[in-house]
C-alpha cells in the first residue's frame, strides 16, 4: 500500500464516517436530497479551485456559503419552498460551473479525486471531522425531537432556530469535504445511503447511529481500496460500495 493510498483511506474513512453520522439525521428530516443540491452548489467553487490550483474543499465551501446565502435571501423575498429555491440555485450553479470548468478537469470536479492528497489535508480534514462529530452530537437529540414535533422540541427548551442553523452548517461543511472524494454530483449518496442501510439493520437509535457511521466509513474505505487495485475513479466506487452495503442490509431487515 502506497503512502498516498494510506492517506486517502484515512481521509475517506473519516469523511465517510461523519457523512454517515450526519446523514442519519437528514433521513429523519426527509432532507436526504438536500446533500445532492448542496453538492451541485459547490461545483463552481470546485471549478475555480481546479482552474487556479487551490484546495477544492475551500473553493466548495466558499460557493456553498454564497449559494446558501442566496437561497436564504430568496426565501425571505418570495413565498417559494426551500426545496424549490434550492433546485433553482443548484441548477444555475451547475450551469455556471460548466461555463468555466476546464474540460480536462471535468472528471475530477464531478467524480472526485483521491490521488493527490497531502498529509496536511488529511490532518486538517480529520480535525474538522472531529469537530463535526462533537457538534452534531450536541444537537442530535434536539434534532430527533424536532423531527417528532417542532412544538414538542421548542417547549422542551430547545432553541430550534439555533439547532437548525448549526445542523445546516454541519451539512454544508460535510458536503464541502465530501466533494473532494466523490465529486459534486454524488454527495447526496454519501450522506443518504449509509443512513438507509443503518435503518434496515437497526432496532434502536444507538444501533442506528453506529451502523450509519460505520457504513459511511466502510463504503469509503472499500471504494478507495478498489480504486487502488483498479485505478477506476474512487468517487463512483465509494458510492457503488455504499449501494452494495445497502443491498446486503436488505437481507438483515429486523422482524416487524
Amino acid at each position: 500500500m502506497t503512502a498516498q493510498i494510506f492517506l486517502a483511506l484515512i481521509l475517506g474513512g473519516s469523511i465517510g464516517a461523519v457523512a454517515g453520522y450526519l446523514g442519519s439525521l437528514m433521513l429523519s428530516k426527509r432532507m436526504a436530497l438536500m446533500g445532492g443540491a448542496l453538492g451541485h452548489l459547490t461545483l463552481p467553487g470546485v471549478a475555480l479551485a481546479l482552474l487556479y490550483d487551490f484546495d477544492v474543499s475551500l473553493g466548495a465551501s466558499l460557493f456553498l456559503a454564497f449559494g446558501v446565502l442566496i437561497i436564504w435571501f430568496l426565501e425571505q423575498k418570495t413565498k417559494l419552498h426551500l426545496e424549490a429555491l434550492t433546485a433553482v440555485v443548484f441548477s444555475a450553479s451547475l450551469a455556471t460551473a460548466f461555463l468555466f470548468l476546464p474540460e480536462e478537469e471535468t472528471d475530477i470536479a464531478l467524480l472526485g479525486d483521491v490521488s493527490q492528497i497531502s498529509s496536511n489535508t488529511v490532518l486538517i480534514t480529520v480535525v474538522i471531522v472531529l469537530g463535526l462529530f462533537f457538534t452534531v452530537k450536541s444537537i442530535y437529540s434536539d434534532m430527533i425531537l424536532a423531527s417528532i414535533s417542532p412544538d414538542l422540541a421548542q417547549t422542551s427548551g430547545i432553541n430550534l432556530k439555533l439547532s437548525n442553523s448549526i445542523y445546516l452548517i454541519c451539512i454544508a461543511v460535510t458536503v464541502a469535504l465530501g466533494v473532494r472524494i466523490v465529486g459534486g454530483l454524488m454527495t447526496a449518496a454519501l450522506l443518504a445511503i449509509p443512513a438507509c442501510t443503518a435503518k434496515n439493520i437497526s432496532t434502536n437509535l444507538s444501533q442506528y447511529i453506529i451502523a450509519s457511521t460505520v457504513a459511511g466509513s466502510l463504503a469509503c474505505v472499500l471504494g478507495i481500496i478498489i480504486y487502488a487495485i483498479t485505478d477506476i475513479p474512487a468517487g463512483p466506487l465509494i458510492i457503488i460500495s455504499s449501494a452494495i452495503l445497502f443491498l446486503i442490509s436488505l437481507f438483515k431487515l429486523p422482524a416487524k
Binding site: S147, I148, N204, P254
Partner: peptide, 28 residues
C-alpha cells in the same frame, strides 16, 4: 416547569430513525 403535549396526530410516528421508547424517555 411547563410540559406540553400537542395533538398526537401532529406528532411524527413513522419515517423516523428507529427510536425506541426508552431512548425517547432518555431525552428527559
Amino acid at each position: 416547569k411547563i410540559s406540553y403535549l400537542p395533538p398526537h396526530e401532529f406528532l411524527q410516528r413513522q419515517n423516523l430513525p428507529p427510536l425506541n421508547i426508552e431512548e425517547f424517555y432518555a431525552f428527559k
